[in-house]
Computed example of a mutant assay.
Amino acid sequence: MAAVLFGIAAFASTTRTWLNVQLPATAVQTPDLAVSGSDAATAVTAFAVVAITAALAASIAGPIARWIVSVILLVAGVGVVAASYTVISDPLQGAAGAIGQAIGVSGSTDTVVTLTVMPWLALAAGILIALGGIWMALASRSWTSSRRYAPAPAPADAGTTADGSAPAGPPAGEGATTAPAPGSSAADEGEAPVDDIDSWDRLTRGDDPTTYR
């Protein structure tokens, strides 16, 4: 869940303004530019989506798959950090595409580009995503996997008891267990399923076959 939240934070930061651009006075009169993170660092958006998807997959992954998810989270976190740091270290390069579209020239020395807090937020989220991947690799070794329908134990031989001896029959004159009526099954009588066919019949009707285990 932490990795999902950090991925969402990184993705959300790319929808906000990363760079404020003041164009040179000699250029064609255009308003100042506000460059979003999705334009300044497209890779951050992609890595954030990968991190969110991988973190969600961890909830249903097995032991081996968790290691794979951990590696993906680590790579995604490092990718977010690298892309964010590139913009932080060189804001003008991050805004070059938006400046070129506005005035046709992206290399003007008179252009002033200032950073907002959003690139730093994405950088912090990337670090936390990477740490989440490392933590998952270490902690998931003790996680257990559970399934709704666990395999049923093998039934004992009807002709023998637990110690291998033949079961004693009912005394003479007393009622004995009778087989279900033709065309019906134990599942239809409200009893525990006696074989796989009865279990499938119960499951088809929407009943839980594990109730009788």
Rank of each mutant, 00 (worst) to 15 (best):
S142I: 14
P209V: 15
A139I: 14
T17G: 01
A65M: 10
P170E: 13
G190F: 02
A156N: 09
S140P: 05
R202G: 10
S36L: 04
A27L: 03
A27V: 10
W67E: 07
Y85R: 14
P155W: 01
A98E: 14
G164D: 06
D195R: 07
V113F: 00
P182H: 04
G7T: 02
A43K: 08
S106T: 14
T160W: 05
V49C: 04
A65D: 09
G97K: 11
D163V: 12
A122S: 14
V50A: 15
I60S: 09
L73I: 09
D32I: 02
Q101F: 04
P167E: 05
A181E: 15
V194R: 15
I88E: 00
A137R: 09
A65L: 12
A158I: 14
Q93L: 07
G107K: 15
G159A: 11
G126M: 06
P171R: 12
A187L: 06
D110A: 14
G169H: 10
T111V: 15
V112L: 11
L74R: 04
P171D: 13
T14F: 00
A10H: 05
I88S: 03
T116N: 00
A57Y: 04
L73W: 04
L33W: 01
V87Q: 01
G104Q: 11
I8H: 09
A58M: 05
T114G: 00
T111R: 03
P31I: 08
S59N: 13
I52C: 03
T30I: 13
S142D: 15
D188T: 14
V50F: 04
I60M: 08
A96N: 08
A98Q: 09
P193A: 08
T53P: 00
R66E: 11
V21C: 07
G175E: 15
A41P: 02
